[in-house]
Design a protein around this nucleic acid. Structure first.
Lengths: 177, 177
DNA sequence: TCCTAATTGAAAATGAATTTCATTTTCCTT
DNA sequence: AAGGAAAATGAAATTCATTTTCAATTAGGA
């Protein structure tokens, strides 16, 4: 790996703007508890158990918002809850992913990041090579074009990944020649 | 990782078709030796050395065409040249990447693949979750749209990654419901 | 309360990528 | 042609994120 931003401390700043409209980055408290209810129902239905750890992890994860690694989420939680282990954080994120509450993304820095999934929305990413910030966007034209291309190939898209690596407005001037 | 195709033997079939025009998949012998000359010149200029191993690895790499992992290339070479080690294959691919003769791509299966780089072309990928085949495409409209989106954000794109995961024409019928 | 299956978490395992280091090779200089 | 310095090689070791193991603990239905 030789992306520039890998050699710097990884900031977690996350701007969330859509192609045309703006989008909420951090879920509001109402939504958080709503999601937690959904998850609880899901667990019960599957015969899984609700535990204190899961509750804490899920809460923190939903609060955090987006694009967090298992490691970072663990560290965040560990500050206040020394007894929750990395493995449990990791497994909870996997559980959330499998049950449709989160998605897993492998970025070019070879770190897997998780983000809460809000059903309908699928977005793409702009990743700044200087400050490491990850911005999201969603563009209808893009989605349509993708469908069209796939059709041309007789290809049936299940999911896609689209990432731009470059320099954000704030960092453009620092960009190497 | 839980992509379906990871649990199957990874075939190396590579179809190479562009948005509108078709593209050569395996480089023709003329081009291979031309590239090898370029590389030799590059090495000399940098004070690096030309070695038997590098020659063999580069030849095999260029012949192979695209999207190969260091591991797979090593195995391919190792059949005929038992004395060439994995490390050297790995390092040569890195060298090719650094000197602009190849690119490195991390796909969603968490394996780094290398492919020869022919200057101008930048293409995107369609990856079949069933048979594992990787198809390439290039679409001008897409490139333009990307630029437009980036501009909206004041973002300066250095590189991008775009991958569709789904089922190819041949595998559509096997796709899970 | 009891019991069983699920969960937890520390530690170990995995696996790809990368580095180390002693040895060998290239190729420039004499 | 030698000689020598710098680069290259390759086996083995290391790294680092991710995943699994396993013994101990906990949840929650009977």
């Amino acid at each position: 790996m030789n992306f520039i931003f890998l050699d710097r401390p990884r900031p977690l700043s996350l701007t969330c703007i859509m192609g045309n409209r703006r989008k909420h980055s951090t879920a509001c408290p109402r939504k958080v508890s709503e999601k937690k209810e959904q998850l609880k129902a899901f667990l019960k239905q599957k015969g899984f158990k609700s535990t204190r750890q899961r509750d804490i992890i899920v809460t923190e994860f939903l609060k955090t918002g987006e694009h967090i690694t298992a490691e970072d989420l663990y560290r965040k939680i560990n500050r206040k809850n020394r007894e929750i282990g990395f493995t449990t954080v990791y497994r909870t994120l996997k559980l959330l992913t499998k049950s449709g509450f989160a998605t897993e993304r492998l970025f070019a820095d070879n770190l897997t990041r998780y983000e809460p999934l809000s059903a309908e929305e699928h977005h793409d990413h702009l990743i700044c090579l200087s400050c490491g910030s990850i911005m999201e966007f969603e563009n209808l034209k893009m989605e349509r074009l993708q469908e069209k291309i796939a059709e041309e190939f007789g290809f049936c898209i299940i999911t896609h990944k689209m990432e731009f690596y470059g320099y954000c407005r704030e960092c453009r001037d620092n960009a190497p020649a």
